[in-house]
Nucleic acid binder design. Structure first.
Lengths: 333, 333
DNA sequence: TTGTAAGCGTTATCAC
DNA sequence: GTGATAACGCTTACAA
């Protein structure tokens, strides 16, 4: 790998002149420029970006840290960030945090040490105080989940409203016993969605049966256990609100067999192709990713401009077949 | 952000001693060590990994470049690489190349310039000669697709055998007119799978009707167009071999409506939950990713050890309902 | 227009 | 056991 020095030696100029030519500085004679360009070609010069980053103190890179990159929701966020970054000659590094909150600070700080230009994070911990030291140095934007213990920009979605919408929809279809499947109340989205679920009951003059709230669906087994708990109730639910798409995907076989009416928070690929097709609260992860990346660019370009800290995006209900239980029963007759 | 110098000043030692303490070098007095550790804590020292990488010439990072990270197949490869990397105190940076072959060299070289410890790549170009200059410096491992124009390790799957299996399966179910849906013959997997498809016909003493081969399904629209071409044939197929999972996902609504028997190369989430559930050739992307990452570690640790260049993993047919057309018709009666 | 010198933060070398 | 010094490849500031 040839360095600038090598090129300089070959073109018989100083390293600085090579730097000028390579970076398009106009203050170079046509003749010198040609000689340098020839040497660059001959030695097949490729800059060492680590050296540049080291020198300038900032890599043209946006970090993305999400619970699990294989989840289509987070993959969309990452893809959006990458699209915007590429358009600005930056690149993106993506890291999966995993489900273990203890690993988050390690993984995320490993990213931040790379002198990133910015970080987009969907955290799995309840406390991101460990990021405080970095906020002065690197723009940090939270997506999907609000920060806690640190002040930072965030782009989230209307969890409570969406859950309210979903639950009300089921109530309007005649359901009074609606199960709630969720992962972990440590995750703010889940907390907010449970609040929306409760609010819908109260709004309809109904009371919430705490037995119908099944948490712990963090992984596949947990989701199955939570679902089993609902099925074993004496007075079983007739409908289900899945507070996240991951649980809905994992439980798909059981949902179908159960005949329960279902609404899920979060659309996902092929949700419309299941039998019955799944009614969902539609989020827009691509927009979330785009907005977050845009905010990082804004923060970099205008360090002192005031920006709204919290942005909450609205969500819609996409009605499909999975809450048409009555109709389906009619058809089956 | 405190540097080693700052810590050194506070502990009244040299930077080198701080480095020794931080890196666990035993040649330090207990007393000095304690003083340094206190200073490290007080200043909340975090190493600048760019500087370390710059100095050592190699980042503890494995790059992963795939066509599209949102594709579950490639996401699995990345996840596997990340799991193995993490276990070896390394991290992973993931980049989507996208569908445009022209972008590949730019994107991939941007990665390589980061002084990576290794690169895992599933290319979209027909020629990776641009990587030749890097092979001496960075271990490069191809996954899913063989290299061309450059010598490198590869882990791929038995494309031709799998396609043969799939096609034979359909033939055994009484189909003679089997459509082939594929993306682009520039992609070696597609070429190989088409070869397997042809071989199955020849093996059964049948001839291939070239009209039944529909390519161009690189994106959603292309896939739809390819499928439409088959549907408009005068003598329409009774079955379909989808040469990749992405096309099958995109065409899911049409496949269901068409009533065609279908086998797809590549399993994907919820393929078993469609109606009918999809018979697939099952690949193992997680193993692909694990093997690739392991190979990079091996190459780093044993630069001179000989390794098999090409490894081809076997694939299995997972029989579900989508090629039981006769049965389904029977049931419908 | 071109070059020199210094330095980014860390680590390797080699003195002491 | 500890420290001074140089070096990694590049860019900024300044001088020529």
């Amino acid at each position: 790998m040839a360095t600038m020095r090598d090129v300089a030696a070959r073109a018989d100029v100083s390293a600085k002149t090579v730097s000028r030519v390579f970076n398009g500085d106009p203050h170079v004679t046509q003749e010198t420029k040609q000689r340098v360009e020839e040497a660059l070609r001959e030695l097949n010069y490729v800059p060492n970006s680590i050296a540049t980053t080291f020198r300038t103190g900032r890599a043209p890179v946006i970090g993305v840290a999400v619970p699990e990159i294989a989840d289509p929701f987070f993959a969309s966020i990452a893809e959006a960030a990458e699209t915007l970054a590429t358009a600005h000659d930056m690149s993106v590094v993506i890291t999966s945090i995993g489900d273990d909150p203890a690993r988050e600070p390690t993984v995320v700080q490993a990213l931040l040490r790379q002198a990133l230009s910015g970080l987009i994070i969907a955290p799995v911990t309840t406390d991101q105080t460990y990021l405080t030291a970095w906020t002065g140095r690197t723009p940090i934007v939270f997506v999907d989940r609000q920060p806690s213990g640190v002040i930072a920009d965030s782009f989230t979605e209307a969890d409570s409203d969406g859950a309210h919408l979903a639950t009300s929809h089921l109530i309007a279809h005649g359901h009074a016993r609606i199960g709630f499947i969720g992962d972990d109340l440590a995750i703010p989205t889940t907390r907010n969605r449970l609040a929306g679920y409760r609010a819908a009951f109260h709004g309809a003059g109904l009371t919430v049966d705490e037995d119908l709230i099944a948490l712990g669906g963090t992984n596949r087994d947990g989701g199955a256990a939570a679902f089993a708990k609902l099925e074993q109730l004496e007075d079983r639910p007739t409908a289900l609100f899945c507070s996240n798409a991951r649980a809905a995907r994992a439980l798909a076989p059981k949902l179908r067999a159960s005949g329960l009416a279902v609404v899920t928070f979060g659309d996902f690929p092929l949700a419309d192709m299941l039998t019955p097709s799944l009614t969902v609260i539609d989020q827009d992860p691509f927009q979330l990713g785009t907005l977050a990346a845009q905010r990082i660019l804004d923060r970099l370009n205008h360090p002192n401009r005031r920006q709204r800290r919290r942005t909450v995006l609205g969500v819609d209900l996409v009605e499909r077949d999975s809450c048409q239980m009555t109709d389906r029963l009619d058809l089956a007759r």
